[in-house]
Amino acid sequence: MATLKEQSKKEQILTGGHRLCAGCGHGIAVRMVLNAAEDPLVIGCATGCLEVATTIYPYTAWRSSFIHNAFENAAATISGVEAAYKSLKKQGKIKDDFKFIAFGGDGGTYDIGLQSLSGAMERGHNIVYVCLDNGAYMNTGIQRSSATPRGADTTTSPVGKVIPGKQQFRKDLTAIMAEHNIPYAAQASPNNWRDLYNKAKKAFEVEGPAFINVMAPCPRGWRYNTPDIADILKLAYETRYWPLYEVENGEWKLNYKPKKYVPVEEWLKLQGRFRHLFRDENRYIIDEIQAEVDRRWEVLLERCGEK
């Protein structure tokens, strides 16, 4: 476990001068993950906020090799790079060791890139895939994705007379990836930076595919006070909405168990996208969200052998 002091002495791979919004969760999560890498990296990105904001021609904010291909195939692209590297290494044309990592948003991972991600995981490439989950297509103007929480106001699930925000619960992608029986899958929140660092380190170290789902709040889309990102990230796992856990070779492990029960509305009320839920006629949605959070938590406890 590296202290912040040790971490800060390493070269920072993401430079300043990228065009992510002020206070964007992506910048925080990416810097934390990359700090755990020991070898030089090849970084791939799915189309999304991160890719668009860090590689505006003729600039790149990555102090490493970088490849972008399309929205749906970040995992396929990075697995192709990894396969080429393996071949060149075998032929003696590359001497150094490299690690391969792809970042995708929830749109490029939960929705559009799911098939290529699933394929890359199944083929067993030695890659790390990090999903930065901000729960909607923020880059194109806050359209709902399958990661958007129930009840959230987005431009394609707008709150009005007809519907009170998104009608479905979110997809549990981390569990789906774990069920690929890959060596490592985890869910993390940057507020617990130790936990995220350890998970990133494990993901880089394992032989074979690794997946980490990281919560990355979006001040624009979630409509919270920008400096409060740490509170948002913390309440996400304190309310059990975003549990911190990892699955190593099929073994589920809960990394953090909240000491007391915090209702999910504590997390919801900090965000403008859920404001309408607190009107009397919509309170039932909060109850439904709470029931679903509790249900998924019980399932997780069982999987982790905590009950």
Partner: peptide, 30 residues
């Protein structure tokens, strides 16, 4: 502050707070 800065704009020097990089800091307040 260094760990949470999204813009790599807190410059750590020798394991300590060094300075703010005002050329890149966007003033998010995190």
């Amino acid at each position: 502050c260094w760990r949470f800065c999204p813009d790599s704009s807190v410059i750590a020097e020798d394991g300590k707070f060094g300075r703010f990089d005002y050329e890149h800091c966007k003033g998010c307040g995190i």
